[in-house]
Structures are given as structure tokens and as C-alpha cells.
Design a protein around this nucleic acid. Structure first.
Lengths: 105, 105
DNA sequence: TATATGCGCAACTTTTGGGTTGCGCAAATT
DNA sequence: AATTTGCGCAACCCAAAAGTTGCGCATATA
């Protein structure tokens, strides 16, 4: 089943995993230690993150180190782009308001 | 129940609502027409979006126009900031790789 | 070779969440 | 005043998802 990144980052545990992996690659067992959770539960989160390509595995022996995939995270950034116009507009309006107030002084 | 913005945008319908409202304020009935959905279903989505302050109501008579709150949307941008470092690093590494390849020519 | 360890997968339970219908209330219309 | 319209809230149904336990398999270690 193909996952989508919006649903992937909706879960707080998965966001925490991403934050950890952004610093360094970790194995499922280590992640499970960090959160108070069974390895299998973490494994499910990993599956979601992997299927939408937010992380990628690197097998070394019987251990699997999962790496953060920054490139994929940019998709989220792209989605946000459609709203940047809006908040910049709001700021411009605020600037205008401040200018008006200043002019009145 | 206080909602969180990550869960709010996890739903595709809510993302579509936000995209619409970013262009212009709309009433629940109008939104329900846009999607093939009852007004009550839309109303539930509105509740989620309202509770995490991604939209704000403007009552005029018996109609309620919901506005997009760009300011709140910036919280995503702030969250993303922790990963920007990562993808810039990846780009730098790509640059280095390209430089190495170029040098070999 | 026997045993430990690290992992993913499957089955199951419980919680969450998106959809519906059916209200009641307030504002507009007649 | 009676009716229509726009809305939110509550109860309910069903699907999805997050957690658990219990496997089986592959890789280390004794």
C-alpha cells in the first residue's frame, strides 16, 4: 500500500523518529529503546515511513540502519509553497497598516 | 479536544478545503457543494481546522464565512526548518560529487 | 552445531476518525 | 406568525490505524 507523506508525518511518534534520523541513522531496536514501545510497533512506523520514501534502509549484517531522506521531505515544502503567497500578503498588509499608523503620528 | 495541525492536514479533504479558503472565504454549504459530501461531514472537518486555528469564522447574519489563517500555517514551516539543514547538506554533497566528476574529465 | 540476537510479517484487539442521519436553534423570508 | 434556510451538535456505523503477542527467518556468537 502506497502511503502519503501527510499521513506519515501526522503521527507524533513518526515525527520523533524523523527528527532522530535527521541527526543519525538508527536501527529499529535502538528506536524502540528511545520511545517506550515494542520493536514491532516501531517496525510498523518504519514501514509507513519507508513506503513513502521518507527513510531508506542500509543493511549491515543482521542490522538495518535507517537513514532520513531529506529529498522526500521537500515534497512537503512544495505543498506549503501555495500558501506562502498568503502569509506574505498578510505581512504586507501588516506593513501597510503600520505605515498608516506611522503616517498619522 | 485540542487538535494538532499535522493531523489536520493529514486528511485530503481538509487540505482541499485549505486550498480553497486560501483563495477566498467560503461558507460550509458552499464547501459541501464543491466536494460530494453532506454539510455535516464538512462541518466536522471545519471543526478540526478551526480548533487548531488554521481557519477562522466570520459570521454575517446566519451565514458563516471561514477564512484561511496563513499565520498558523507557518508553524509547518518552522517544523520543517529542522530538516532544511539536511537537504542543503545533501545538495552540498551532490555538488561535491559533481565537482569530483568534473575534475576527472 | 546449538544458541543469541535483530528483524519483518501475520493475526488479533482497541482506539481513532470520517461518514451518515436526526435533531434543535437562530436568522432570513413569506 | 409561519416557513424556509444555514448552521452546529449528538448518536450511530464502519473502516482504518496504532498497539500488542506470536511466529519464522537470517545472521552473528558460543
Amino acid at each position: 500500500m502506497k502511503q502519503d507523506i501527510f499521513q506519515a508525518i501526522a503521527d507524533p511518534t513518526r515525527r520523533a523518529i524523523l527528527t532522530l534520523l535527521a541527526i543519525q541513522a538508527l536501527t529499529p531496536n535502538v528506536m524502540a529503546e528511545k520511545f517506550d514501545m515494542t520493536r514491532q510497533a516501531v517496525s510498523k512506523h518504519i514501514k509507513v515511513l519507508y513506503e513513502c520514501e521518507l527513510i531508506k534502509p542500509e543493511q549491515t549484517g543482521r542490522e538495518i540502519y535507517y537513514h532520513f531522506n531529506a529529498k522526500k521531505m521537500q515534497e512537503f515544502d512544495n505543498w506549503l509553497a501555495q500558501f506562502r503567497q498568503n502569509w506574505e500578503t498578510q505581512f504586507n498588509q501588516l506593513d501597510q497598516l503600520l505605515t498608516i499608523i506611522k503616517t498619522k503620528e
